[in-house]
Design a protein around this nucleic acid. Sequence first.
RNA 1: CGGGCGGUGGCGCAGUUUGGUAGCGCACCAGACUGGGGGUCUGGGGGCCGCGGGUUCAAGUCCCGCCCGCCCGACCA
Length: 545
Amino acid sequence: MPGGPGRRRSGRPSDRHRPGLVVPGRFLGFSARRRGASSGVDGWRYRSRRLPVRHLARSVDGNRVLRGRSFPVGSSAMATPITPREHDFPRWYQDVITQAELADNGPVRGTMVIRPWGYAIWERMQAEMDTRIKEAGADNAYFPLFIPESYLQREAEHVEGFSPELAVVTHGGGKQLEEPIVVRPTSETVINSFFAKWIQSYRDLPLLINQWANVVRWELRPRLFLRTSEFLWQEGHTAHSTADDARQYALRILRDVYVSTMVEVLSIPVLTGHKTARERFAGATRTWTCEGMMGDGKALQMGTSHELGQNFAKAFGIQFSSETGTQEYVWQTSWGASTRLVGAVIMAHGDDSGLRLPPRLAPLEVVVLLVKDGEGTAAAASQIASELRSAGHRVRLDDRVDISFGRRSVDWELKGVPVRVEVGPRDLADGLATVVRRSDRTKQAVALAGVGPEVGSALTESQLSLLEEAQARMQDRTRSVATVDEAVEAVEDGFAVLPWEAVGVDGEARLAGSGVSVRCLQRPDGTLADADDEPGLIAVVAKAY
RNA sequence: CGGGCGGUGGCGCAGUUUGGUAGCGCACCAGACUGGGGGUCUGGGGGCCGCGGGUUCAAGUCCCGCCCGCCCGACCA
């Protein structure tokens, strides 16, 4: 663990002096609590038929102290287990990140090292979003990390919004700089200074630019992936000749890039709407947002798309000659989604055994697990792996038989790989292999020839079932209320929905006092409003990350 | 910034009250046995006890100063 001695050491006197707190039930999540579960003697659920009983007898014994508390665990020699999600959600989140090897804290507070598995997930998100962004007509480019401080100051609301979280460079080349340089918190200002140069005529419009970059916003309360001082993201910046064109584009990005990626790839349902003035992006005239519900009922803002009006155009003098020969200011948008989405996937789908990745997002869709060497098992496993690969799946063969089977199973499970194919001598003797689904923890023994089809349907069904699970949670935990006070109460385990008229600016301030915010405004049927002040809008209210 | 705590092998901690050879679990290394859900046994390696000063024959432990971090209260992808 980087960060020097004591960095992650917990000073939790209340924990240390508290008598062991035992969480009821079997800790490792081998429980058959899910509806319709038919659990085998080993605690595993088998789909349609049970495997012979000789498998995996496993006892759960004793308690073990974990950071001053005890949890029932499966083996005295087990590595540090994950804190149960229901017991302490933030700790569970941390544990998943550590044990799935997603990220580490960097040496400077608030910074993050994204480890290979976490980065592979981000790369998948990038690929999916990048394709969609290009389909929407935007091109990638790259602008500098360093921005003259004076640029930030050109747009009043923008500076005001970002000043508190700026990292400012005052020295360079061994000398104090004449003008301080800020590390970009977002790139509106630099990019627009170039838009002013590039845009002359209506023929140059629309100008649609995207960049993949890191940005810095100093954080007082960092949380891996969710709030770090530096993070990776995509930021789009566009200029249009009319307000309506800009608006339609901002909405197109919201729908065709963000909602599409989140629902179809990440399997996370989102609510869409616009932000209140209080929550709006600094410098925007309107902010559209996607809000997801996490496993603890809190909201996470997963992507935003802004209409900037002519605010930056005027600040940076971005003008063009119209078809009629007049000089006009452009109408603009900007939109972004970040590595925070990795946190969203963890919190939306993870369980007490670790991460659960939707197949379309997973860096590996399938791991073929060689149980034991010999009796032709290695060749069989290898063949299954290459057949799956030829079928177009992302596959890894895990033939590290020097590491125990249990250890490897648990590791892949922690990492959230959607499907495992277990190949061992016992099944093989019967011409079988075992297909295990991470999403609902079921096992299925199938004939070797049937592995491909079974894996295929396991992947398709997992993608869908994760989405359905998340949808069910959002429905179950969203309540209609009538007043701000009721909203504060309802928001303890989910979202509250109430007429925006019943909240208002004053109500919003009152909510903020209880750590609650208006996540978005939308029509009662969930569609987007035409105007900020359209009558009859509802407010979606929640605690948020 | 206000309040509450803590820095001891990679990680989590005990040891500090009452000064006397620096320990435990996990992880790591080697070998053997194992192998269908975090294996077992045997043997090993690894420490500036946050930093600096002091008291003492002797300091992880007592005293003084400093540094760093964690948790709880006001902003943000």
